[in-house]
């Protein structure tokens, strides 16, 4: 919340309303939206935007594990979460769907494995 005003495009539907979000007398005011969903999106983006994070974990012997958070997490924690993923110990026998990290960076979200890319033989 470092800025007093946010200009953004609503992504809740294909119309793509250009939103302006401001804090006026302690109230968060969204303008430019055509529906209540736009107001909700604008407020969320202004106060605490949420993102699903996807990342790649490099395996020591080549190849990767692809992962994602199993729900959206606070955007402000993006790089801390990435750091925790990148510095995690290498799992012994990683498999699709396994939990890679539980409760990553205390967000309540788990990081799950979406793909294992190992060089075959």
């Amino acid at each position: 919340m470092s800025n007093n005003e946010l200009q953004t495009i609503c992504i809740r539907c294909p119309i793509g309303c250009h939103l302006t979000v401001k804090r006026e007398n302690g109230e968060i005011v969204v303008s430019g939206n055509n529906c209540p969903r736009g107001a909700e999106y604008g407020k969320q983006e202004f106060t605490n935007p949420m993102r699903t994070i996807t990342a790649v974990y490099k395996l020591k012997n080549g190849g990767t594990i692809c992962v994602r958070t199993n729900k959206a997490v606070e955007k402000v924690k993006y790089f801390e979460i990435l750091r925790e993923i990148h510095s995690a110990p290498e799992p012994k026998n990683p498999k699709y769907g396994d939990t890679f990290i539980s409760n990553v960076y205390n967000t309540g979200a788990d990081v799950i494995i979406t793909a294992v890319n190992k060089d075959e033989d």
Binding site: T52, T54, A55, V56, C66, R68, Y96, T114, A115, N117
Partner: peptide, 24 residues
């Protein structure tokens, strides 16, 4: 397999999957 970002399958599976998950 190489599209590890999410956003796949919203119409088909009613979920936001990554590329490898959608293929899976």
């Amino acid at each position: 397999n190489q599209c590890i970002h999410n956003g796949f399958g919203l119409h088909r599976f009613n979920e936001e999957l990554t590329g490898p998950e959608y293929a899976h």
